[in-house]
């Protein structure tokens, strides 16, 4: 039974997201569109599952919700900070830095989420991954203390992601 469920619905969250996106694209909620969205949500993951092995085993969606709000808040704060730096700090006084974040996360999906979060938040862009995937290269726009930025990323985002993907 569980095997049948797995083979019919290889990515249950993708099914829900595809159905939601379809309904949003239609811009109206009718029964027909919802059913068609659900069909798309079942058929597309099923067809593409060959190219997408290794679904993350554990994904705690209820922990993803506070994480999303923290990231959204950080994006707003980051925007104001970066705008302030752009307008007030002259080029000569700007202190950009590379920082290296050692990763405890192992799943590619979790590292992708972390890298995306870093790029969207306070003055940091994730630039590269090391060849074996044990550390993440991050560029900081303006900082006096690169180590504190690294610790901030580890405690604020990575620790939460470890809980989500565990």
């Amino acid at each position: 039974m569980r095997g049948l469920y797995r083979s019919l619905l290889p990515h249950p969250f993708l099914t829900i997201i595809l159905a939601l996106v379809w309904i949003l694209l239609q811009n109206e909620l009718t029964a027909g569109m919802a059913v068609f969205g659900l069909i798309l949500g079942i058929v597309i993951p099923w067809i593409t599952s060959i190219w997408w092995p290794g679904t993350p085993k554990a994904f705690r969606i209820h922990r993803m919700i506070p994480y999303t709000f923290i990231v959204l808040w950080d994006i707003i704060v980051a925007n104001i900070e970066v705008a302030w730096i752009v307008l007030t700090v002259p080029n000569a006084k700007l202190k950009p830095a590379w920082i290296v974040v050692p990763l405890e996360l192992r799943q590619p999906e979790a590292i992708t989420v972390l890298a995306g979060t870093i790029t969207l938040t306070p003055g940091t862009v994730s630039a590269d991954l090391s060849d074996e995937g044990h550390s993440l290269l991050v560029h900081v726009l303006h900082t006096d203390d690169p180590d504190s930025v690294r610790d901030d990323i580890k405690t604020r985002y990575e620790r939460r992601l470890l809980e989500i993907f565990s």
């Binding site: 590379w98 862009v125 994730s126 630039a127 590269d128 090391s130 995937g133």
Partner: peptide, 22 residues
């Protein structure tokens, strides 16, 4: 960012601690 690192048009990043290179 990857293109900038590849073309070496930015400051070279420090080597990663555990692995060989970026």
């Amino acid at each position: 960012a990857k293109v900038a690192i590849h073309q070496q048009s930015c400051e070279a990043p420090p080597p990663p601690p555990r692995d060989d290179t970026w």
